[in-house]
Amino acid sequence: MELFLHQVLAGLATGGIYACMALAVVMIYQAIDSLNFAQGEMAMFSTFIAWQLLQWGLPYWAAFFLTIGISFVAGVVIERVVFKPVQNESVLSHVVIFIALFAIINSAAGFIWDFTIKSFPSPFGTRELFGQRLISAHDAGMIGITILMLVLLYLFFRYTRVGLAMRAAAANPESARLAGIRVGWMVALGWGMAAAVGAIAGMLIAPVVFLEPNMMLSILLYGFAGAVVGGLTSPLGAVIGGFSMGVIENLAGTFIPYVGRELKLTIALTLIVAVLTVKPSGLFGRTVETRV
C-alpha cells in the first residue's frame, strides 16, 4: 500500500510536467484549431534562451520574465512569417509545416548550444518539502504554478473581450470576421501565448529532466496524450489528463510485471486509445455535432 501511494505521488510529480505541456498544447489548439507538433521544440528553445540569459548573469526572475516576453514575440513572429502563407491550405500541409519547424528548431538549438546536457536552476530549490521524502519543493512549486496558470488562462478566456474574440476566431473564423474580429491577429496572439506558456513549462521542466535539445520529445508525447485524453477543448481536462498520464505511466511501470518497464509508454498510449474509443472527444471535451 505504501509502495502504491509512493508511486501515485511520484506519478503526480512527473504528471505536473505533462500537465504543463498539455496546457500549452490546448492553448494553441484553442487558437488555431490544430495540434502544433513543434510546440515542444519551441519550449525547449525558450528554455535555452533562459539558460543563456542566466549565463550572462541575470537574476533568475528577471531571466524568467524576459524569456516569457521573448517567447511571446517569437511565437507571433513565427505565425506571421511561416504559418500565415499556408493558413488557408489543407490540414495536411499544416502538419508538414509543423514537422519542418520541429526539424529547424531542434537542429538550430543543437548547433548553437550543442548536445551536452546542461543543468538548469530551480527557483524553489530541490529539497524535500516539509521534510517528507515523497515530493520535492520543486515538484510542489511546479504543480502550484501549473494550477495558477490554469486559473489565469481560465479567467482570460472566460472574462476578457480578447479571450472571447480568440475563442470565436478559432471556433468559427468566418462568423468571427463578420462580427469585426481580426481573425489573423487572434491566431498570431494564440501562437504567442502558446509559446509563452510553453516557455514557462520548459523552464519548470528543465531542472528535473536537464536541458538538452531532445529533452522535450517524450514529454511532448505525454503532453499530447494528456491533452487528448482530457479533451482538447478543455484546459482543465488537459491538466487532469496530464497528471493522470504521469500516474498511469508510473503505476504501469511498477505493477505490471515483465512487460511493464519495457513497454511503459506503449501501455500508457494503449490506455489512451481505449479511453478515446469509449469517449471520442476526451473525458472533458465538448462533443461537436456535425451536419451535412
Binding site: V82, P85, V86, E89, S90, S93, V96, I97, I99, A100, L101, F102, A103, I104, N106, S107, A108, G110, F111
Partner: peptide, 21 residues
C-alpha cells in the same frame, strides 16, 4: 552537417509554399 535538420525543414517549408497541394 550540423544544421542538416534546419536545411531539411527549410526545404520542406519552401516545398509546401511552392506546391501546397
Amino acid at each position: 552537417k550540423g544544421l542538416s535538420g534546419a536545411f531539411y525543414g527549410i526545404i520542406l517549408i519552401l516545398t509546401i509554399y511552392a506546391m501546397p497541394s
